[in-house]
């Protein structure tokens, strides 16, 4: 019984081969740990995990090649379609905001960095106006502070940039 296969997504073949490379790398690293000198050596299980990854990746690639190619609209290339489907503007902006937030967490401190992240992301995603973004980010940040800092006494970064 042949299962119905969906269409191949843009970038899926490359992703499949990247997974295969990762599997081969894990297998090689497993071997490199101690040369697999005995069946109970430290490298055996990592190498086994790499082997399973490699064999599975080959099965995945075989399946990908059996799929019909993705429908690419006229005037758009595979690369553009890949970006449009996998990393639309919202995902790219939020990933960038997350990265900036994490980088700012220690120098700016938890409260400042979190407020900036919440305010900017709610303002961008919700598109409900400045006041909503301001109120929601202030209220939720206060609740998070009470739960983590006050209730669970979690030490949160206080920041050194504005000291």
């Amino acid at each position: 019984m042949e299962q119905t296969l969906r269409r191949r997504q843009p970038g899926e073949t490359v992703f499949g081969y990247a997974l295969l490379l990762l599997g081969l790398f894990v297998m090689a690293e497993g071997y490199r740990i101690d040369g697999l000198y005995s069946p109970s050596s430290a490298g055996v299980f990592p190498a086994l995990a790499g082997l399973v990854m490699t064999v599975s990746a080959l099965a995945i690639i075989r399946r990908i090649h059996r799929m019909r190619p993705a429908h690419i609209p006229e005037g758009s290339g595979t690369a553009r379609e890949f970006v449009r489907r996998t990393t639309p503007a919202d995902v790219a902006v939020m990933a960038a905001l997350m990265l900036a937030y994490m980088l700012a967490l220690e120098p700016v401190g938890f409260l400042g960095a979190s407020f900036a992240f919440l305010f900017l992301s709610i303002f961008y995603l919700h598109r409900g106006g400045l006041l909503t973004a301001l109120l929601v980010s202030t209220g939720s940040l206060a609740a998070i502070w009470v739960v983590f800092r006050v209730l669970f006494t979690v030490v949160l970064p206080s920041g050194w940039l504005f000291r």
Partner: peptide, 19 residues
């Protein structure tokens, strides 16, 4: 609204991991 919920999930994820 997801525009509010998603940033909250992300910030909880960051705080939870840091904690």
């Amino acid at each position: 609204p997801p525009g509010i919920l998603i940033p909250l999930i992300l910030i909880l994820s960051v705080v939870g991991t840091y904690a």
